[in-house]
């Protein structure tokens, strides 16, 4: 009786099992041949962004993996890269951070100088803000006011001179929430990373 059952099962499902095996092999083969390239693409993207933010750097070394508490009590991971110039000196630090934006999560790459005192700018890794409004956080024109601003303690103002570099960030008109989100993410990540890095280095 069991033999009959097994035979029935085999008759019904041999095609399914054999093709599942073949498909599995196919995917494994494709993955094996493409995986290094995919990995390289990921590294290149981050590398390119960091290089434009810190042009003096020759190489980026992973310095630490830290946990940052977001305002909502969630923990996010952040990788700190040490930017090293041709002569081997540290010219700055770069790290990624994220937080809630207007519509979805905003992920940023941030660069600071070697003492964690001045920002060297930031760029968006991913965001999904309203097109035409919050979307402008990606534009170089708005991001420029962060280039040289003091790290941490940024404040947001609705009007003012966008070209003046100081701790006062001028919000994008019509997208105060998105601007506020970016400033909050930067302040929060910066203060915590500063503290944790100081502990590590001492």
């Amino acid at each position: 009786m069991p033999l009959k059952k097994i035979k029935y099962f085999a008759e019904q499902s041999w095609l399914l099992i054999i093709s599942a095996l073949c498909f599995g092999l196919l995917i494994a083969a494709v993955n094996a041949s493409l995986a290094p390239r995919i990995e390289q693409n990921k590294i290149n993207k981050l590398d390119d962004l960091m290089r434009t933010l810190l042009p003096a750097a020759e190489e980026f070394e992973v310095a630490a993996e830290l946990q940052i508490d977001s305002a909502k009590g969630k923990k996010t991971k952040s990788t700190i890269y040490k930017a090293v110039s041709k002569t081997g000196e540290c010219v700055g630090w770069s790290f990624n951070c994220s937080g809630a934006g207007f519509a979805d999560k905003i992920e940023l790459v941030v660069a600071v100088d070697k003492n964690f005192e001045k920002m060297a700018g930031f760029d968006c890794l991913s965001s999904n803000e309203t097109p035409g409004f919050g979307d402008k956080i990606k534009e170089a024109k708005w991001r420029k006011q962060f280039d040289g601003a003091p790290a941490g303690n940024l404040t947001l103002a609705k009007t003012g001179n966008i070209e003046k570099i100081d701790s006062e960030i001028i919000a994008i008109s019509g997208a105060t929430v998105s601007s506020d989100a970016v400033v909050n993410i930067l302040n929060n990540a910066m203060s915590q990373i500063k503290k944790q890095m100081a502990e590590i280095q001492n």
Partner: peptide, 22 residues
């Protein structure tokens, strides 16, 4: 069977895209 076939080729398409059009 159809679903299995389609899912396999979609995975391959996804990998190709990740490799050549990140």
């Amino acid at each position: 069977m159809f679903t299995l076939t389609i899912a396999t080729f979609v995975t391959i398409a996804d990998l190709l895209l990740k490799a050549f059009q990140p």
